[in-house]
């Protein structure tokens, strides 16, 4: 029993990471119908930025946090302007390859800037692990879960309740119609990108203390994020959130109860099952559709 609780705690921690990443991806998809294969790299940027700003330059945490998020947003902005917007034919396959190219590019840049060695970041709050029913829970895990909830909630509020957010959704539903009603659809695209990559950076900042940050940490995280987003249903924020947590918990249970060697396979087997059985995802009413 005690083990099961421990597996759940570990699962929720990793799951919350996947959830934050998936929420960022899902948010971008719901406002631009684009899947950003470089999203994992923005997570890496966030983590590396916090290493530089907080650990190396010893800025106060809130300032370093803001700086790292700002970096993520700015890079997203630049990325949208320079690579996505300029694409001659914005077909999905073309855009996918562009984002794949961008992910390789960003990894290369990070390798030059930060070197090849991994870095470690101290926990945000210096407490011992908390013991619940014989299972240990990390303070940083609570931070991560909190961040995930806040982020998903914040983006949800933004998209559903604010005018700008509603405009953004309108652009995704029908760009031309949105433009006709006077929504500056170009600006909305940029904004969506900045918010999405910024949230990726947030994910990076929060996981930096529990794991090691290096220039190549993003790829696997990004892929797991996709799985989570797909499981929950592309385009649905809470679906992505739930998908992330579910994925984390199942992985942890799988590693504990079945085999740790097959842990990574669990995510992808789950993904395939979801795609075969209910391709729209567990928590989304939308049908899977063509590009």
């Amino acid at each position: 029993m005690q083990e099961i609780i421990q597996y759940l705690f570990s699962g929720i921690t990793t799951g919350a990471i996947y959830a934050v990443i998936a929420v960022g991806l899902s948010m971008l998809y719901s406002s631009t119908e684009l899947i950003n294969f470089a999203h994992g790299e923005f997570v890496m940027l966030g983590a590396m930025a916090i290493v530089t700003l907080w650990v190396h330059m010893a800025l106060p945490l809130p300032l370093a946090f803001a700086g790292a998020v700002a970096l993520g947003c700015c890079m997203g902005l630049l990325f949208e302007r320079l690579a996505i917007r300029t694409a001659r034919t914005p077909q999905p396959i073309v855009l996918v390859i562009i984002t794949v190219g961008a992910s390789i590019f960003l990894r290369g840049v990070a390798m030059i800037v930060w070197g090849k060695d991994p870095f470690s970041v101290p926990a945000f709050s210096r407490h011992d692990s908390i013991e619940i029913a014989g299972a240990a829970l990390l303070p940083q895990s609570i931070w991560i879960v909190g961040a995930a909830v806040l982020l998903a909630g914040g983006i949800h509020f933004f998209l559903k309740k604010t005018l700008t957010g509603k405009a953004m959704v309108a652009c995704a539903v029908n760009k031309k119609a949105a433009w006709l009603t006077g929504i500056p659809s170009e600006k909305m695209g940029i904004l969506a990108f900045a918010v999405s990559t910024g949230s990726g950076a947030v994910a990076g900042i929060f996981i930096a203390p529990i794991t090691m940050s290096s220039y190549d940490m993003g790829t696997m995280l990004g892929l797991k994020g996709f799985c989570a987003a797909m499981i929950g249903g592309l385009g649905s924020l809470w679906g992505a959130f739930a998908g992330g947590i579910l994925l984390g918990v199942l992985e942890s249970l799988g590693a504990g109860l079945i085999s740790s060697g097959l842990k990574d396979a669990i995510a992808f087997i789950l993904l395939l099952l979801i795609l075969y059985i209910c391709p729209g995802g567990l928590f989304s009413a939308k049908e899977a559709k063509r590009f």
């Binding site: 083990e3 421990q6 597996y7 705690f9 570990s10 699962g11 921690t13 990793t14 990471i17 299972a135 240990a136 996981i207 529990i210 794991t211 190549d216 940490m217 790829t219 696997m220 995280l221 992985e251 942890s252 249970l253 590693a255 504990g256 740790s260 842990k263």
Partner: peptide, 11 residues
């Protein structure tokens, strides 16, 4: 590239 190994260690 695992971020966490507590599940394995618990086992």
């Amino acid at each position: 590239k695992d971020t966490d190994t507590t599940a394995q260690l618990t086992k």
